[in-house]
Design a protein around this nucleic acid. Sequence first.
DNA 1: AGATGACCGAAATCGGTTTTTGGTCATTTT
DNA 2: AAAATGACCAAAAACCGATTTCGGTCATCT
Lengths: 190, 190
Amino acid sequence: MDRQQEILQAATTSFTQFGYKATTIDQVAKIANVGKGTIYNFYANKEQLFEEVVIHLIQEMKHETNKTIDTKASFMYNAHTSLMKMLEFRERHLLFAKLIEEEKALRTPAVRQMLLKIEQEIISYVSMRIRNGIEKGEIINCNPEHVAFLLFKSYIAFIVDWQLTHEEPIKEDAILSLFSQTIFNGLAKK
Amino acid sequence: MDRQQEILQAATTSFTQFGYKATTIDQVAKIANVGKGTIYNFYANKEQLFEEVVIHLIQEMKHETNKTIDTKASFMYNAHTSLMKMLEFRERHLLFAKLIEEEKALRTPAVRQMLLKIEQEIISYVSMRIRNGIEKGEIINCNPEHVAFLLFKSYIAFIVDWQLTHEEPIKEDAILSLFSQTIFNGLAKK
DNA sequence: AGATGACCGAAATCGGTTTTTGGTCATTTT
DNA sequence: AAAATGACCAAAAACCGATTTCGGTCATCT
């Protein structure tokens, strides 16, 4: 694996485990087995390295989701399988969870900014899919941004907030059936 | 108005305006036009005064909601009007918003604890209503706790989080129609 | 008997000092 | 020559003792 890959990998590990602030460049260098200066050959500064990690993760999620989408299938079916896919890779979203936690606890501006970027990115992606479903006449004529916002916040609530008030995390299939029964089913044209 | 009422009123005002931590007992005394010692004749300490304020607010909300419920009407209709009622009194929920903000920023343990209490209280109330709807055969057989959690978190997301990423608050009727189109409609038996 | 505010100690705040850490660059390695 | 490196620097964060604030008490006063 080339050095840049190694560094990105190490940074992802460290940010996920310790958060943004508690991750030091020295530490990333050590994990990646490179000198500190080498990192700056590829990334201008810590914030950009962070951004690269986040962009990479978003891309991966989009890619993963797109793979599951079958343009022949119904919106309903695709929404269901996409959500399932997302839930399957929940651990990978632990970076998000970590960042949300850090944002709440430390209010690091860089983290806040990145979270808003992630949110905006995801919501605009989901909006697009919803708009698509409306155009195809598969789902009712709703406000795509509002529905996307609702979906995003609901998802985060179960992935992140649920643990705060309940001992054990909620099961994937419980979330899945809940969303299917409520939001998704509500959206479907009858 | 008797002194105790005066104090509770003053405390509510101050907590809502400044939050828990930034509210001093001296200040409450001043607003209520009583000596500081007088407050301790009615409330053991600041935390209990806070709890009393919160309990009062929850009671008021429950009462307000119960008033709108028509046992003859459908679950759907009642859910809709209850939500409408809640939205109507949005300003009164500003204390909640303030507390959520404070919890995020300062992590005051007393505030955290109180928010969890509020959340638990509301979710258990909504759960009860949902269980009722299921028993009456009006809505599909879902998990009442999960649906209540979803409803609560969604409501909070629009009342509190929306402003963080959007300039102007979302309109009441936009929230209302969104909930009707998605979650509520999904729950309805067809 | 109930209300009050001066008073107390614990907890928060502040400001100056020390330590940590993001970022650079002269030197070394390939 | 090009890339890698870690000693080094300045700026930001952590630390810590001095000072202030504030929750809670109680002797005194209505």
